[in-house]
Simulated assay, not measured.
Amino acid sequence: MAEINEPIVSRAAIAGHPLHPMMIHFPVAALLGLVASDLAYLWLGDPFWARASLWLVGVGAFGGWIASVAGLVDLLTVTSIRQKITAWCHAIIAVMMLSLASLNWLLRYAGPEQGMENWGLYLSLLTAVLIALAAYLGGRLVYEHGVGVDTNS
């Protein structure tokens, strides 16, 4: 691993603490929990799990879009972030993932039990895979490139 020389400061931060990594935890947890609630609905057939899935995908999608605004601010306003291929890959995969989550929510919204079980699960699983990829790239931005890390302490 390369040594981080120059800190890359986030512009979307409060008291030097970057907002994007703080905001992303709840949407990620909701979208990963969505896979479990989809499986529970398929196995048990209890409508509670279909409603839980609707709420989880809604929290995940809308919360993710809100968190992505902070990441977008950094991507577009910090030159050293914008110059990193890893940052662009992270952003593109995150947009793909949030688009799938939004589609998943939209398809469920009319009626969480309207034959969406299989498609919902497929979209949930694909979203989870994209979350893993985006998280890996986000980790590389922090640990390899020092994005949002105070290296002067």
Rank of each mutant, 00 (worst) to 15 (best):
W119D: 00
A50Q: 09
M96E: 02
N104V: 01
E113C: 01
I131Y: 12
L98M: 14
A70L: 08
M23P: 01
L121P: 01
E113W: 03
L137E: 01
A70E: 01
S68F: 13
L141N: 06
I131S: 07
H145S: 03
L75D: 04
I93K: 10
F62L: 15
Y122R: 14
A132L: 14
L125N: 03
C89Q: 13
G45T: 08
V142C: 06
V129E: 03
V35P: 09
A67L: 04
H20K: 12
M23Y: 07
P21K: 12
R51F: 03
G64E: 04
G58M: 08
G45W: 13
A36K: 10
A36D: 05
I81L: 10
V129I: 14
F48A: 14
S124A: 15
A52C: 05
S68A: 15
A67D: 00
W88L: 10
L42A: 13
L39P: 02
D46H: 12
E117D: 14
L75A: 08
L34C: 04
A52L: 15
R140W: 09
S102C: 04
I131F: 11
V59Y: 11
A30N: 08
G138Q: 10
E113M: 11
I66D: 02
G115C: 11
H20V: 02
M22C: 05
L126S: 07
M96G: 15
I24D: 00
I14N: 01
G63R: 07
R108M: 10
L126A: 14
D74E: 06
Q114T: 08
T77N: 08
V95R: 05
V57M: 08
H25F: 06
L19V: 04
R108S: 04
L107N: 04
Y109P: 00
Y109T: 01
V28C: 04
G45F: 13
D74V: 07
S80F: 08
W88F: 09
G146R: 09
L107K: 12
Y136M: 10
T127F: 11
N118V: 14
G71K: 09
V35L: 13
N118K: 15
Y143D: 01
D46L: 11
I93E: 02
L103Q: 04
P47W: 14
G64L: 06
L54D: 01
F48G: 07
L126K: 09
W49Q: 10
L123A: 07
L125C: 10
Y136V: 06
P27F: 10
G146A: 05
A67C: 02
A110P: 00
S37L: 12
H20P: 02
W105D: 00
A70R: 10
